[in-house]
Design a protein around this nucleic acid. Structure first.
Lengths: 150, 150
DNA sequence: CAAATATAATAAGTATACTTATAATAATAA
DNA sequence: TTATTATTATAAGTATACTTATTATATTTG
């Protein structure tokens, strides 16, 4: 292969933000999965449980579509995962009071208990995972928020 | 729910690097998937094709385990996805010259052609996606590398 | 009000992404 | 050289994560 035919725009794979993001996320998700294993929760399940708790505390009407928007998990996956969590007895899905198309999601007592424990574990894990950034974490957060807002 | 019982350590979900990383990655992967649709490639397939091309250019012996390590895709998924790519005629998996346990992966002519086109599209997509960071991209890359090195 | 459009949820199907377990071989140590 | 350990790849099974299509209901518009 001829050198002048290089299809890559960067000299090192380590200079591509896309490839770096791919690698970091792969590792992060893999480690989180291990941390959640003891609660028999997948990462997506945890995100939806924590989001349900979060939105409930904001006094939002917790519909599936709102959970999907908040968690950035697509609506179909949200539906599937929530049913799994319902089967596990961690949350309930009732008919919405005013919108009969929608369902209202709420944690059960056990769901609340497990979610609280899992949040602690994940927050500690994240603290460790992002520790190499030191006091640059807020800068990192700011950059991520920039990417979300486009 | 009592306020003093707040299980979250941050006042806003937007202050949690973990949740932000989850959201950014979800959006990024979803958009990349759309960009790769016209080549009938998933994101993982693209990463493995580009990694094969990259490692080939580095004159590395491109085994599945090396591809797995480079791409951060676990070995089993690497095996499955590579077989899909082989069925599509985009790459070949031959017996390794010296290690009969291993397989040597190489792009076909068509695989090379499609990979080159897809790299262009993904690099352009990433340029757009990370554009809000402006000249802070190298700082962002540096932070991601810190997280990889731990 | 009736028709058109939008929204909320899900069925079915495909492709990861992971787990544990296993086969086959390579590399190393006694 | 033989036994132990490590490496490379894959089988089988589970849970996302997505797509397109559909159902049911809300909302908007003429």
């Amino acid at each position: 292969m001829k050198k002048e035919d290089n299809p890559f725009s960067v000299a090192e794979a380590e200079e591509s933000p896309g490839f770096l993001l791919w690698q970091v996320t792969s590792l992060w998700q893999r480690e989180i999965r291990k941390a959640l294993e003891k609660y028999d929760l997948t990462h997506s399940q945890f995100v939806l449980l924590a989001s349900t708790m979060w939105l409930t505390r904001q006094n939002e009407p917790v519909t599936q579509i709102l959970l999907s928007a908040h968690s950035k998990i697509d609506p179909m996956t949200t539906s599937t995962v929530l049913r799994t969590l319902q089967a596990k007895g961690l949350l309930e899905r009732r008919e919405h009071a005013t919108d009969t198309r929608a369902k209202t999601v709420a944690l059960t007592a056990n769901g609340e208990k497990i979610t609280r424990q899992a949040i602690k574990v994940v927050e500690q894990f994240d603290a460790d995972f992002f520790a190499p950034l030191g006091n640059k974490i807020s800068e990192f957060n700011k950059k991520l928020r920039l990417l979300l807002q486009q």
